[in-house]
Design a protein around this nucleic acid. Structure first.
Lengths: 387, 387
DNA sequence: GAATCCAATGATAACGATATCATTTTGTCG
DNA sequence: CGACAAAATGATATCGTTATCATTGGATTC
């Protein structure tokens, strides 16, 4: 915990500086500040020396840490310390530096510091998309936790496309992130090689594997498909259909579902649609199912929006849920518990994936790697009205 | 366009290198490549000097551009050119460099380049949240376009909280992004000052203002609220209610709606709920409305999820839409056209906000700033079954 | 064949911070 | 009060690139 406290010092300190403005200026050697600068004629406080005032004509050079040092009358390294480790600087010096920063409007250049220290405080998050809450919530949780600790998230969107993932990864690695968050466990050989060569914490997510590149946080899609099947079987349904998106994980859920049925000597009609699953696609798929003359007692959809589509298409066609047909979704999206009928689904905690990934990354970066390289966040079947 | 082509050279070039592997090997020294990998007996060109082979025990130092230069037998600056401006390097040199990069597994350090060149190829995007598709889609469109041009997105989540926005902004600016994408037009005085001082393109979004910090891409929330009111009035409804989230923009839509009604001599009951609006909150709000004995003919919700909640709560309570009550949403979320009844709403193109912002940023960074500092993307009333 | 130009390459310094080691100041204790 | 440890500060070198200016060599021109 002590370590974490230090982590946030950089930004926190600067923000504090801002807050303090005007307050608590306890008579510090203002004369001193400019004395070193040029000719200290009038010895009143604070005639800003050679300050490139914003708004002047010329393209004002950047205000650097060295400028702050000059104004504060200390060495650059002391300014660096005042910003990053305020606890090891005398309070008098800290005050001078603080005021100097405020006065000349210094904004630290993390680029330079990162180059020298080899720590960027940047974590790359590569996900297929954030257009649906599926991955977005995990990224949000990741970002929230990391930003508390003074890290930022570099966002990479791969669009469910492995070639693109490699490109995004390449771009991300060039920025030397301190860690990487990835979606899925299927990565190109090239990607794996690059990730290993980068020698940084890597968290794969959403899925499980006995051999992660580094760490993995996820759950079993095969298992959740099976659990869905068991739930429906236990409710007495015997004729099944599956509406599945075509991404890797949705197909795994479908396969798990089918495998469990097969273990019980049953089968299911399968309709494939696109990724990401949506209400519209669910409606279309269900319509097709009905028009194909398939009359299942229960439909398992690889995501909640698809299931919602089935329910709505049913409403429109006079097929009642669960009266005529049971519907089960996956994901426990925020609407699932509140639509009508409420949707039975398989719940897993998207935000937890991001949170745990963040914690694992932070732990690793603080030199206290967690023992768990493989974290199974599990899932729960949520029985609701639709089944 | 030519300029843009250059922009993507960095990553594109590297990826091409990889793609070429094995294929289209135009009589290049393959033997050479692996010969030198281990025992460099033969003194043919490029016997790799002091190469830290990945996988050795010691914490291998980074492979730098200088290492590539040594292996390729050229100067570092030539390697830099081969990567960034392959067109101005001889094809022979390019090939050598390409192979050297491939051979020693060089990953460029954008940090160092950015520090020197003062161009990070980073764009910070600061939005309240990506948990709902509202902002996520805009960010996605922004990221997609920017990544085509060789830029990456630094994600900042402010959580609908201005203090937090300042912190996030501070952190983002320290990374010296080449441009910034912001949500909304309300920013603290400190934020405005910092943004101006940064002297980079700034795009505010989702809203309009005659005096943007730099550029603004959005539409009128007051106007869309008014348009919703006009639509409902034109359909003959006369008793209204509004269910509104409490963020700034939702309240503006509410106010626009009420103002238009007032112009027509009408009023509306208002129920406030939370931000972001959700199906659940919509249900609750509508339930409260009914329990309060309010019996409007039409309800305007400041977002589609709220409206969907109203429809569902209606279903459950036997209040039919639009038979007993008309419902209008806002945003034209992807489900709006596909629920039952289909949802009348005010449509605006979230992705277009991101796209236009990206184009504006790229234009500005390429020294060809667009004349338009204020882009109104407009909105459209979508009349569907629910009204 | 000399003059000229352009394409290709190189040498050097610099971007702005921090790691490392060195030094000065302050505080403590007998 | 002097000795010594601890706290505070400083000097210097360096991270890995690219900006800038300089140089080379071959092609083009008349």
């Amino acid at each position: 915990m002590a370590v974490l406290a230090f982590e946030i010092a950089t930004h926190a300190a600067l923000l504090r500086f801002r807050a303090k403005d005007g307050i608590d200026s306890v008579g510090i050697d203002f004369w001193n500040m400019k004395a070193s600068m040029k000719k200290p004629k009038t010895s009143d406080m604070g005639s800003v020396p050679d300050l490139r005032v914003e708004g002047d004509g010329r393209p004002s050079a950047n205000v650097t840490l060295t400028d702050v040092a000059r104004v504060a009358g200390v060495s650059p390294i002391t300014v660096s310390r005042a910003i990053n480790r305020p606890d090891i600087v005398s309070s008098r010096t800290l005050k001078q530096v603080t005021q100097a920063i405020e006065r000349i409007g210094y904004v630290p250049n993390l680029l330079a510091g990162a180059l020298r220290s080899n720590r960027t405080r940047l974590v790359a998050a590569i996900v297929p998309s954030i257009g649906t809450s599926m991955f977005a919530e995990a990224v949000e949780a990741l970002s929230d936790r990391l930003s508390e600790a003074g890290y930022e998230v570099l966002l990479g969107l791969s669009g469910f496309n492995q070639v693109h993932e490699d490109e995004i990864l390449s771009a991300a690695l060039s920025r030397k992130p301190d860690a990487i968050f990835l979606t899925g466990i299927q990565h190109s050989a090239w990607a794996r090689k690059q990730l290993l060569a980068a020698r940084i914490p890597v968290v794969e997510s959403w899925d499980l594997t006995p051999s992660p590149i580094d760490m993995v946080v996820g759950f079993s899609h095969d298992g959740s498909g099976r659990a869905a099947a068991r739930h429906l079987l236990s409710k007495g349904y015997r004729r099944f259909a599956v509406i599945a998106a075509t991404d890797h994980r949705a197909l795994q859920r479908r396969d798990g579902f089918l495998a469990e049925l097969e273990d019980q000597g049953t089968k299911a009609a399968v309709i494939l649609t696109h990724t990401p699953g949506s209400l519209e696609l669910g409606r279309n798929a269900f319509a097709q199912l009905l028009e194909d003359g398939i009359q299942p007692e229960a439909v398992f959809c690889t995501s909640d929006p698809l299931a919602q589509g089935v329910i709505i298409e049913g409403q429109v066609r006079g097929v009642s849920v669960p009266g005529d047909i049971a519907v089960m979704g996956f994901g426990d999206f925020s609407f699932a518990a509140h639509i009508h009928p409420t949707l039975s689904t398989v719940r897993f905690d998207r935000r937890q994936i991001g949170r745990i990934a963040a914690e694992a990354i932070l732990a690793e970066l603080n030199g206290m790697p967690s023992v768990e390289r493989i974290v199974d966040i599990g899932f729960t079947v949520m029985e609701r009205e639709s089944t």
